[in-house]
Computed example of a mutant assay.
Amino acid sequence: MPARGASAGASGSGAAGRFLTMLAAERGAALNTLAAYRRDLDAAADEIGDLVAADGAALAGLGEAWSDVSPATLARRCSALRQFYGFLVDEGLREDDPSPSLPRPVTRRPLPRLLSHEEVERFLARAEEEAAAERPEAVRLLALLELLYGSGLRASELVSLPVTAVPRDAPFLHVTGKGGQQRMVPVSTRARAVLSRWLAVRQGGSRHLFPSRGESGHLTRVRLFQLLRELAGRAGLDPQRVSPHVLRHAFATHLLEGGADLRVLQTLLGHADIATTQIYTHVDSARLVALVNARHPLAKRS
Rank of each mutant, 00 (worst) to 15 (best):
Q226N: 09
A235G: 07
F225Y: 15
L224N: 01
S216K: 13
V222S: 11
H218S: 10
R241G: 13
G217Q: 08
E215Y: 06
G236P: 13
S206L: 08
R213C: 02
R241F: 11
L227P: 11
Q240M: 14
L227R: 05
H218E: 03
S216V: 04
E230W: 07
L231T: 04
G233Y: 01
D238Y: 11
S206M: 07
H218T: 06
L231E: 05
R234M: 01
P239Y: 11
Q240V: 14
A235I: 03
S216R: 15
P239L: 12
P239A: 08
P211D: 06
P211F: 08
Q240K: 15
R229Q: 13
R221W: 00
H208R: 15
G217D: 10
R207P: 01
S216F: 05
G217E: 07
Q226F: 11
P239K: 12
L237M: 06
A232N: 12
P239Q: 11
L224V: 02
R213Q: 14
R223Q: 13
A232D: 09
L219G: 04
A235E: 10
E215K: 15
D238A: 15
P239R: 10
S216Y: 03
H218K: 11
G233R: 08
L228H: 04
R241L: 14
R207N: 01
H218C: 11
A232K: 10
Q240A: 15
S216I: 03
R234G: 02
L237T: 05
H218P: 07
E215C: 03
H218A: 04
R221T: 03
P211M: 07
L219N: 11
R234N: 02
H208V: 02
G236E: 13
D238V: 10
A235P: 07
E230Q: 15
D238Q: 13
G236Q: 11
S212D: 07
E230S: 14
R234L: 05
G233P: 05
A235N: 08
L224Q: 01
H218G: 05
A235D: 12
L224G: 00
L209K: 10
L231A: 04
G214I: 00
Q226C: 05
D238M: 12
L224C: 01
L227F: 10
L219T: 08
L228A: 02
R234W: 03
R213T: 14
T220K: 11
R207L: 06
